[in-house]
Nucleic acid binder design. Sequence first.
DNA 1: CTTCCTGCAAACCTTTTGCATGCCT
DNA 2: AGGCATGCAAAAGGTTTGCAGGAAG
Lengths: 143, 143
Amino acid sequence: MKLIDSLETRGIRLTAQRRILVEAIDNSAEHLDAAALLERARERDPRINRATVYRTLDMLKRQGLIDELDLMHLNGEKHYYEPRNRRNHAHLACLECGRIEEYSSETYELLKQEIRERSGFTTDVVRLEVGGRCRACSERKHG
Amino acid sequence: MKLIDSLETRGIRLTAQRRILVEAIDNSAEHLDAAALLERARERDPRINRATVYRTLDMLKRQGLIDELDLMHLNGEKHYYEPRNRRNHAHLACLECGRIEEYSSETYELLKQEIRERSGFTTDVVRLEVGGRCRACSERKHG
DNA sequence: CTTCCTGCAAACCTTTTGCATGCCT
DNA sequence: AGGCATGCAAAAGGTTTGCAGGAAG
């Protein structure tokens, strides 16, 4: 389900600007940071301001509808965002070429369940990030 | 093995200030951020400067001897550090009381191995952070 | 002499906030 | 009127850097 629909379901009204921002997140293939999101949204309404971006992201976070990623700080301290509805997945970041790959599996689900059972913590937000070298970069080095 | 010994092993000489900083990390029970580390190191040498802290942390990162944690940004954007030599573990952060618990298990190890096998990525740095509510906080709410 | 370390202050980058304005109901 | 949304500019918070002075090999 798209963010826009989740918000609708919850009866949350969006202003025109916020709608543009939410749709930009929904329709993006890659992970966007605040600046990229602003840039993209401005294609549809150039008046949109940075502060509005952050305030909209804040609203989505408080609704638990988006996840905030660091992607191993590969590009500084900025945060990246993605809708939470996809199956929760790890992010593998290649420290050499910067490629980001997503990873999910039964074992990952199992681990989360195990954490809940053994620690008593709820797992509201789970962030698994791996920094390493992707296969292509490894082979390029060895070859 | 302590950071200080790993550095010794690698033949890396430390200045007096850097030694103090490294030992502060080695001897700390909790996770320190740059400011806390500075404060603690200044107890032994008040002349130590912020920049030296960051430069020393940078050196340790480049040596792969410390891990950098975000702890779910529970307290803003600062980074926390810990020696990498302990068995790699997840960090469970209680969003209510701020408690940080460490978690490691066979399943976690298995998952990392699975990631390597299936994705072809090396897993040089693995960061698993969970945000939720710890058992005590859950019970307090329900009770 | 050369290299690396250090302090200081300024710069940097991203995110957050205060305030006045404006829109919508 | 009342309540939120917005733009703007400034502040905040943490990290990085340029430069000049020093210590060490």
